[in-house]
Design a protein around this nucleic acid. Sequence first.
DNA 1: ATGTTC
Length: 483
Amino acid sequence: MVTIHDLTPVSEFEWEIPADARKGMRVGVRLFATRRLLEAVLKDNAVQQAVNAASLPGLAGPVVVMPDMHQGYGFPIGGVAATALPDGVISPGGIGYDINCGVRLMASAVPLEAAQPYLERLVTALDQHCPSGVGTAGSLRLSDADLEKVCRLGAGWAQQRGWATEMDLRRCEDGGCLPEADPASVSPRARERGRTQLGTLGAGNHFIEVGVVEDVYDLEAAQAMGLEPGCLTLMIHCGSRGFGHQICTDAVQSLQGAVRRYGISIPDRELVCAPLDSPEGRAYLGAMRSAANYAFANRQILAHQARLAFEAALAGVVRNFHLHLVYDITHNIAKLETHTLNGRAQRVCVHRKGATRAFGPGSPDLPPEYAHTGQPVLVPGSMGTGSWVLAGTAESMERSYASSCHGAGRVFSRSQAKREIRGEALLRALEKQGIQVRAGSMGGLAEEAPQAYKDVDEVVRTVCGAGITRKVARLRPVAVVKG
DNA sequence: ATGTTC
C-alpha cells in the first residue's frame, strides 16, 4: 500500500516515487497532483498500479500519472508509460478495454440565446440520431470487406461514404487513422460484435454534450479553434464499443502465454504484455490499431449524425447552425512516437490510458492552423459540471511524454455510486440547473453522478500549474445525451 | 468500458 510518505514533493503540482529495485521498479513514478487530489487518489489502488507498471521491461523513463488518475485494469487510468526496443513490451492493460476511447469537440456560431427555445427539440433530435446504450446496434451492417476497410482507413472510411470533409480528417489526431492496422489479427468474435455497432455511442461515461463557450483564457488559441464566446459547442465522448472490448479481452487472454514464453516477470497478472518485437506483440498492435481506427470512424459517423440532428432541430429557425470540427483526440491508445529522453531522440511506444496526447506548438504532427497554439486537448468534466479545452506545451514534451489529463476521474466506483445516488434525483437536479438530459437508464445516470468524480477544475488547475498544458476555454453544459 | 458472469 502506497502512502503519502512514499512520495517526494517536487512542486505544488508534482510528486515523485524514486525507482526502488527491491520493489521490482525499473524506473520511478512521476505523479501530477495537488496535495488534496493526492489524498483522494491514495484511497484506491491507482498509485500502487503505477508502481507496478514501473516494473515492465524496457521502460524508457518514468511512469507518469495524471491528477485524474484512478484504479483501472492492471494499470492506472490516467497513466502514461513509454517502452523502447530492444526489450520493450506492449501491454493491453496500459491501453484499456475501450481502445481509442476519445473525445471530439465541434463548435458553431450559434449564440445560446438564439438556440435556447429549441434546445429540447435539439436534444431529442440528437438522442434519435445517435443510438446509445449497452449492446445497441446502429443502422449500419458492415460486410467483412467493409469492416476491414474501417480497420485500415478509420475516419477515412466515413469520408469515402460522404460523411466527413477533408477538414474533419485534418483535425483528427493522426488524421483519424493509425497506420499498419492488421484486421487479420482481429478474432471472428470481435468482427461479429463490430459489424453492427458503428455509429453508436455506447453507455457508461460515454455521452454527447451540448455546451456553450463560457470563459476564454487564450483568445488567440480560441480564435484558431473557432470557439466563440456564448456560442454552442458539441462534444462526443465514445470509443470502439464491443469491437475494441473484444480485442482487448482476446489479447489479455492470449498474452498470458506470451508472458510465460518470454519469461517476463510481472507483479500483477493484469499487466500481461509481450515484447514489441514478437509475433504476439505485433499481432496485438495490429488488432489494437484496427480497433483504434474503428473508434475514429465511429466518432466521425456520430459527428455526421449530430450534424443531421442540428439540421433537423435548427434549420429555418436558427442561422449558421453548421458544426465545424475543433479536434478529435484519443485517450486510450499506444503509439510509436519519437521523444527526447536523457538527451537523445528515441523511438518509443507510448501507452496512454486515460491520458491525452498534448503536442506543443511547432509539432509536425499538428495541422497548420494549430502550429502556433499547440494541440487542442479536450477534457470533459463529470456530467453537468463543465468541460475544458486546453492546449499542449513544449513542457509536456519534456515532462510527460507530451501528455496531459483526460477528464475529472472517478473518486468512487460505479457500484458505490449506484448504492448512494438516485438517478431520478440527479436528473431533477440537472434539470434545475437548466441542463436538458436524455438518459438511457436511471442506474446508468447515477453511476455518472458528479459526486462520484473529482473536481475537473482542480485537475485542470494541476496540469496547467505543472505546465504540461495551458487553458484555452471552459465550456458550460446545456444538454446531455447518455446511454 | 462491456451482448455489465463464457
